[in-house]
Design a protein around this nucleic acid. Structure first.
Lengths: 197, 197
DNA sequence: GTCTATACCCGGATAGAC
DNA sequence: GTCTATCCGGGTATAGAC
């Protein structure tokens, strides 16, 4: 066993290992489906060892969710800035499919969090509102640029676009062979105003 | 507590009570979030008393899911038969919103079942395939009747329609004030071919 | 920073009486 | 058909040593 002091690691390193493993395991089996002892074992430490870094299971979940949030938000802002909403959302799909582990975590936990009292409920409520408003802003800009029909209500359309992404993600999780960005692109292309030339 | 023999009920009655309560509680907190003892307590019997009717928790979940399936399938078939796919899906939304308890169960459990090894995974995989094929059939018929553009792939479009319904349901569960049938109708109306007159 | 030991609670399922 | 009692496994979190 030799669990000597030599197992020790620098502050940030172990924390990062735990977050990565938690992302994988929560994404596979959901918050309630995994014990912190399972996660600790995979990292190679004991369960109290893990709780030294995150004082509760709930805190670990939120930390795992927030870990990629800045990165993902940044990508979204960048795409929203230089592309039309349609192209930006397809780009986002492609980006997500490249990191299936993070995508699974978000999809599984957002689904799980529709239960009242779920630890991540507040996190996702805030996130939905934020994303919907940002998408709606981008829709308004595209309407001014005559890329989208001005008759559509930006908030209603934003809600719909997010619904399509979420719904397609659910089906992608059941069958990862499906072409997620392709389906998203097909939906969006029917929406945009074609340039006459 | 006088738990006398008088607490006994006729065969089918107790079973139905248990299924109704399980539908509510699984829909509120998910399969893993509720214990069969919780359900038994709400029904007014003991936990082994409940297990007399359903030999395991898993069997109870599947029974609760299948209970409304025949009814819901029948409604779907009826609507699909006499209405266009667009009108049928909006009608289905309205029907669902009228029975929020059953809708919550389906939404929460289908979300939970994206985890490999979840007890209801097989149930929902089969259900998705069945529903998608039925929707695709109805799309083909509407294309022949020139109600939908013939250029669209029926299976791709069916996948998309189901994604929109699922995605809107998720947002409706987070905020039940939202107009689910209205959003669905707005999406579908952009799709159908307007009659020139 | 990590461990062992442990306290404490909860869950599903079974045995057997009434 | 329903109960009490019980088995057994597992979960989170804490105390305290190294």
């Amino acid at each position: 066993m030799a669990p000597s002091v030599r197992n020790r690691k620098a502050p940030g390193v172990r924390r990062e290992e735990i977050l990565q493993t938690a992302t994988e395991m929560f994404g596979d089996s959901g918050y309630r489906g995994v014990s912190i002892a399972d996660i600790a074992a995979k990292v190679g430490i004991s369960q109290p060892g893990l709780l030294h870094h995150f004082k509760s299971k709930e805190e670990l979940l939120i930390a795992a969710l927030e870990r990629r949030d800045a990165d993902s938000s940044a990508h979204m802002d960048e795409m929203f800035h230089k592309l039309s909403i349609a192209d930006a959302l397809v780009s986002l799909c492609r980006h997500n499919v490249e990191d299936p582990t993070a995508m699974r975590l978000y999809a599984v936990e957002s689904a799980e969090s529709i239960e009242p009292g779920h630890p991540a409920r507040e996190f996702f409520l805030r996130r939905y509102a934020r994303v919907r408003d940002r998408v709606a802003d981008r829709i308004r800009r595209d309407q001014e640029l005559h890329r989208l029909p001005a008759t559509l209500d930006p908030l209603v359309l934003a809600t719909e676009m997010i619904a399509v992404m979420d719904g397609l993600q659910i089906q992608w999780l059941l069958d990862p062979a499906m072409d997620l960005p392709g389906h998203m692109a097909a939906y969006l292309e029917r929406l945009v105003i074609k340039e006459d030339r």
